[in-house]
Design a binder for these strands. Sequence first.
DNA 1: TTGAAAGCGCTACCAT
DNA 2: ATGGTAGCGCTTTCAA
Lengths: 360, 360
Amino acid sequence: MSVSIKEIAKICGVSEGTVDRALNNRNGIRQETKEKILQVAKEMNYQPNHLARCLATGKTNTIGVVCINMQDTFFSTLVEAIEAAAREKGYFITLILSHNNIEEELAGIKYLANRGVDGLILFPVAGGSEYVSTLKSLNIPIVTIYNRISEDFPHIDVNSYESMKKAVSFIHEKGYDSIAYLDINFDMAKSRGINIYSFERRRAGYAAGVKELGLCEHIINGFGREKIMDYLSVIIDKKSSVNDKKNDASKRAILCSFDDLAIRVLSMCRESGLSVPEDIGLMGFNNQRVLDDIYPRIYSIDCNIDSIGTKAFDKLYGLMKAGDHAQSNVKNVSDNIDSDNVATDNDEVIEYKFSDGQTL
Amino acid sequence: MSVSIKEIAKICGVSEGTVDRALNNRNGIRQETKEKILQVAKEMNYQPNHLARCLATGKTNTIGVVCINMQDTFFSTLVEAIEAAAREKGYFITLILSHNNIEEELAGIKYLANRGVDGLILFPVAGGSEYVSTLKSLNIPIVTIYNRISEDFPHIDVNSYESMKKAVSFIHEKGYDSIAYLDINFDMAKSRGINIYSFERRRAGYAAGVKELGLCEHIINGFGREKIMDYLSVIIDKKSSVNDKKNDASKRAILCSFDDLAIRVLSMCRESGLSVPEDIGLMGFNNQRVLDDIYPRIYSIDCNIDSIGTKAFDKLYGLMKAGDHAQSNVKNVSDNIDSDNVATDNDEVIEYKFSDGQTL
DNA sequence: TTGAAAGCGCTACCAT
DNA sequence: ATGGTAGCGCTTTCAA
């Protein structure tokens, strides 16, 4: 197929070692020899065989990324940021999608480990101490994003707890005294045993926020149309009977655990004849780009997704360079997934800000 | 790090070859020997070194995917479909993003080739005969998606031309007699020399559609807010003066070259006080999922994105298996990018359908 | 400064 | 049915 070092060596009448010295800028070679070899290599359009180099050096310059899916802009944007950061440093990414399936995730991780990736960035679906042991036994640097597994692995995410908590005060300051929280269905997720750390932190942040303000907690646990409609109907009723009893004058808002929910609620409001923000306030999480094209502009929490991706790679890069695998300086904690699974020193937290908006 | 065939051979007191036979289900090995070896391998948690295998076999079981970006749901969904199809067949994907940049794309392709990917799926940014030669010299199977390069490479895409043309009649049948087309700015793209085959086909389809119906062609060449506003203002004016002169009673619609534009127009209509579909009809292209959450439901052309991804991989898989690289049975055509660059036998066309909707 | 050769872990082929 | 061994293309070490 393509020319090898051996062939170049033969043509130049030198040894393979010398060709290697020329090609890879090592010292211990005379300038003229080097130039001649480089010249020949160029003429023959020599292309190094990455594979052979990997086998010889034990490094692949490839990191594995095990992500949930590519449908959610949140994930795909993150992957894009990781790819950019990786490529800048000369790394490739092998992408595997787990589709929120624990088995697929594990199989993927195993494949990647066998392939000898230098490091792993995980959007964990699984969790638990057994899982941690498995990962540690791989003996390669691992960084988690989004869901957290344990303090054994550096974790990068927006500070979901803090930002949601702040979002509650933010909404409250805009004059809303009833703030509901629209979220994924925890029971369903938990029955499947999947890791929902990120959503747990978000919800916990909301809960802390309303508690601090002395407001009522109202969590809509699942985002099917019926559940949303149930909630909206209260507002619709209130609106239609506004002349009758002016007692319940509370301004209501819904904080959503991710943007798509806010978009959905917005549309359902429109269908139901509710005006946003006149009849109901709305706020999302992630501030994905499509919000810029939707009227009215929904407030959202801007998680600075790009920087999560970048930091995740940078962290991993550090570990890879250090040869200092995460496992080396680790306390042997078996850490289960639960709401007490909070940030540690091994966690990196990303700044956030509130987007501009008109819906509150 | 991990156990090798050699170690297992030593422990079992057999040769490496025998271990290989056991591990890889080859024949020419006694059942008991095999079982014993497998047993030991399991105990030692043997994991095959993919890299070494690749080097020995010359196959990597990896395909390279050079895509534009991951921000557009259209692309990320496609990548997701490719990943699924690939994994099912035991292939990995190494993902490189070109960001619509010709240099990045070329660099990426070169990297992938050196890495010995077994095949390449390209969302081409570049084009032209020189590019074709470069790709052919790589000597690996290549399939293009989205933008086409030349008939030298199998190409998979929705039938943009046909579907856009049909979309025009579809809109017309709904009673609209003025159908504008909102598109990317061709001049800008062309001045950068990038491949816009897919958009060219879409626009050509629109043009053919209006021509066939004897309607006026109205192309909005660029989707900045001003350009869109320019067009909407005509409708706004018409609406406000509707009582004065009832002469221009034409029902207007805008066909958009991709969904995000339709979403944007919808919002701008809302801001401008125009009702959709009462004052203006709207239709998109791709039918991305977010449309389901937006009210009113925008009509769109459902390109069956998943099947594009699947077919692209299947096509590539065929080429890889055949060892029958695309270059082998090729006429040496230098094919430039232009609107005459139409489908050939080497092209696969994907079925499409119109989504349900309420905006027309 | 250069050459020679031993690996990396696996596959594949030829003997036996 | 099994053993032995020569590669794959590169890096790395030791000798000259």
